[in-house]
Design a protein around this nucleic acid. Structure first.
Lengths: 364, 364
DNA sequence: AAGCGTAGTGATAGCGGTATCAGATAGCAA
DNA sequence: TTGCTATCTGATACCGCTATCACTACGCTT
């Protein structure tokens, strides 16, 4: 019963007799044999635990590299008895965010062998939200909060109280209570405004977003910053409150175009409102972009649905959702280590997408 | 060795002594105990294997629902040599479907313990499609083809050649080469037309959809049938070709409203084109629905984004996607059984959604 | 009556990792 | 030397699920 010395001899080869093994993936056992240690030691090394002698660690690492070993995430998750379910709560699928978000989240969850649980909270009252959070927390290891839920400190607190880590997606700014994955709304808006200014516009209107969302504020500030930097005046009459809905974009644009001195460009805080702006412009026999340039934000499907197609800021939601999942899994793992419980702020690059809704202003 | 009758007695309680279990997720053992069968039987049921007595299956399903059991994907992945990955291939145009389709597909795949693999084929050439199908087939047990891919017999044939069962989503009619999950486009269009006629319209225009999609043809025929049944004439000048895009809807509506005798209602073959019709009507100072009623088809998010909100036909894409997954899994299981290889035609009920874009015609 | 499928079900043994604790080795005070 | 931590490593038992095979009924031949 103690013939561990005679390895490589007639010891039943691991992974050979097994008629069940499918892939030819290297297992931890093979690495262990190669390094002449137990699988447990290999496990310790690859998990960066400290109680392994340096020499041993080095030998193991060499074996890992030699065999190009990649731990099987499914086995890891299973063995850790870690709950692998992570919830994505969406609300008012108003945003065509959803599809892209799902694509990204799905990709991320497959890669990590986590299970994605979708939950829909439409217009819940605060009390109901808290109850829902408590109920959901029982079957979940972490949660992703996309807009507009991500803004609610109450929701974040509810999950925190249940000990469930959360990651907020696409907030306007970093927070101390939850980790965020987001773009730099301020600079994106600033850059977009600079683009408009570079095209020759000086009289630029701005349609604000839902005031409860921090991203709205950031976008407005980015706009104002760019205007100030170019020594351009922001006419307060040309900054209108919107609510991220098509309808609010309609109303805001009506007001804007009813002014005696009409703007030559409109910067809407999202694509839905920008699409609405185009619609109103057309209704008033204005050519876009000839008479009026219109730009949006987010690059949701509607940006390429309308005509002309919108110049907008691309927010890579799929990539952000995937990043959120990874971040969440890290947090879940180290929850027990009592490691850093700090909120992380993960910035993802945005991109200015120039399409057909911008042109130099007509000379007047 | 044959005391299998004494179950539930002093058998060591599964999942109670375990100090290791963290999440409170329901396991297959608990379901098994609840249903008074072995875990293996539960496994068979949730995997849709055929060799389980119907009564047993029903009991197990009840337990599954009662406990809200969701199989642990990590364990499945680890244990199963077989992968139940099923692919959903999407292609840009009708991407508004996407979110709903994903929600449904995700639900379906969780319930059935399948893994959903997303693949995106944008405007591939036939040769590239074939190559992609071959490559994809290696890691996949089945495939779902939503529009517009579902129309291609070549793609269906490519997967058939690889021995991978496919299910087409939202085709216009049944097919012999692949199974379909769809609604009755003909009758839906007919009913919508009747709704318009009942509101008092007699001069109704129709914007056709992408001619390569069979659903387009069905919708047109349903329209024509309703008109004929009401003894109304279909003015050929009022039936215009569109391509399911917003832009094509713009152009088609321009033509329609340029006629001397303008229609009082427009039936667009999908919501994007209907939204475009509203936009053009507004541009021409026409009130919707006062001067012009507009209806769409599909009930995609844009239907409730535009103002006024669209009366349209609800195509329950989420439910259809889930149905497609179930159908596919059945085919996969019985592929080895050499059971029926026939194509199934699964019809799902549609629904007429009446919103604000229809009103009786103005008396002239 | 004996033989032989054939459904339906259960027992067992893993899949590739990790938690846990026991054992081994070494270091160092008593 | 003995005892007793402290450090490192290994053996074992699972995580939740499924492949495989054994077994039980119940027909149906011959």
């Amino acid at each position: 019963m103690s013939e561990s010395g005679e390895r490589g001899g007639d010891v039943p080869r691991l992974g050979e007799k097994s008629g069940r093994r499918r892939g030819s993936a290297v297992t931890i056992h093979e690495v262990a044999r190669h390094a002449n240690v137990s699988p447990m030691t290999v496990s310790r090394v690859i998990n960066g635990e400290s109680n392994v002698r340096d020499t041993t660690r080095e030998i193991v690492m060499q074996a890992v590299r030699a065999l190009n070993y990649r731990p099987n995430p499914a086995a890891r998750l299973l063995a850790g008895a870690r709950d692998t379910r992570i919830a994505l709560i969406y609300s008012n699928p108003s945003a065509s965010y959803l599809s892209e978000m799902l694509v990204g989240a799905l990709d991320g969850s497959h890669r990590t062998a986590a299970q994605l649980v979708l939950d829909r909270w439409d217009n819940l009252k605060p009390a109901a939200e808290k109850a829902a959070a408590q109920k959901l927390s029982e079957g979940i290891a972490g949660v992703i909060l996309p807009p507009p839920l991500c803004e609610s400190r109450a929701i974040a607190a509810a999950f925190a109280a249940e000990g469930v880590p959360a990651v907020a997606l696409a907030t306007g700014q970093a927070r101390e209570d939850v980790s965020c994955v987001r773009i730099d709304d301020f600079n994106a808006a600033r850059e977009m405004t600079q683009h408009l200014i570079a095209a020759g516009h000086t009289r630029i209107a701005f349609i604000k977003g839902q005031p409860t969302q921090t991203a709205s504020q950031q976008r407005l500030e980015g706009f104002e910053a760019a205007m100030a930097e170019a020594d351009l005046e922001v006419d307060p009459a040309l900054v209108i409150q919107g609510f991220f809905t098509y309808k609010s974009g309609l109303e805001a644009t009506e007001k804007l175009l009813a002014r005696k001195r009409v703007p030559t460009a409109i910067f809407a805080s999202n694509d839905d409102m920008a699409a609405a702006a185009i619609s109103v412009a057309h209704r008033r026999q204005l050519d876009v972009p000839g008479d009026l340039s219109v730009v949006g934000f987010d690059d949701t499907p509607i940006a390429t649905t309308v005509w002309p197609e919108l110049t907008t800021v691309r927010q890579p939601i799929a990539a952000m959702a995937e990043a959120a999942i990874n971040l969440l899994l890290h947090k879940i793992r180290r929850a027990k280590d009592r490691h850093s419980h700090q909120a992380v702020d993960h910035l993802v690059p945005y991109e200015l997408v120039k399409r057909d809704s911008v042109a130099p202003p007509r000379k007047s």
